[in-house]
Amino acid sequence: MAGIVSRKGLSSTPAQTRPSATDEPVLVRALLIGLVLAFFGLFLLMPLAVVFAEAFKKGWEAYASGILSPDALSAIRLTLLVAAIAVPLNLVFGVAAAWAIAKFDFRGKNILITLIDLPFSVSPVVSGLIYVLLFGAQGWFGPQLEAWDVGILYAVPGLVLATVFVTFPFVARELIPLMQAQGSDEEEAAVVLGASGWTTFRRVTLPNIKWGLLYGVILCNARAMGEFGAVSVVSGHIRGKTNTMPLQVEILYNEYNFAAAFAVASLLALLALVTLGVKTFVERRSV
């Protein structure tokens, strides 16, 4: 560690007079940094900038009318609703799974960890398809649901299910390594001193994991609000009813209503920026 710190110290001096054996020539460094900045500008900054440029191209009024149209407002409401159901569900699961995995030893732990990761490697479209196969008119439960007149597919429950699936690992994924690294000595001490399980969790574990938990929730929320592929399969695209914000963006864009499409998209881009801001904040905190 000391070596890295001193190297960082060295190269941060602007006028470097002593060439080090483990530093690259200035020209090479400048070239590498230049390459990174070029790629960064081309692939990361420009897509972000174009969202806001297109959103405000026709002025504030077009922007406001894009966001305040009834369809857009109902898409915003639906997105908030879906996230408000999906994120707490995965939050509870994440904490429970991390508690079991990090604080206890049992057989099949590694299999469980792998299975929790599974939704990350499944294509979003396939994630939506599985719920169509379950609840669609030709699906396992479709006829029964139809008889009962319960709508899951092309309705809010379907959107929630697909969103829960794609955001399933986020909170658990953040908490497991964090809680494993912290071990369980502090909790054991609390229990020995007579604290109940709930008190131990609330007063000992929670303060230790709060930043990781916050970050997991923020990531989970960003994905829940921004999910497109899975939701697009189960939504049925009923305007004003089952269109979330990303789906509304797609519809507006395909209708060549670019100003409105990018206006709604700019809200989602802001959400992404806030997410990254929180991430940077949490990382500084935990160092």
């Binding site: 921004g226 497109f228 992404a272």
Partner: peptide
């Protein structure tokens, strides 16, 4: 991390 955080539909139209 922007590609993680930016909703894919937004990235797509951008």
């Amino acid at each position: 991390d922007l590609p993680f955080a930016l909703p894919t539909a937004v990235a797509g139209i951008a």
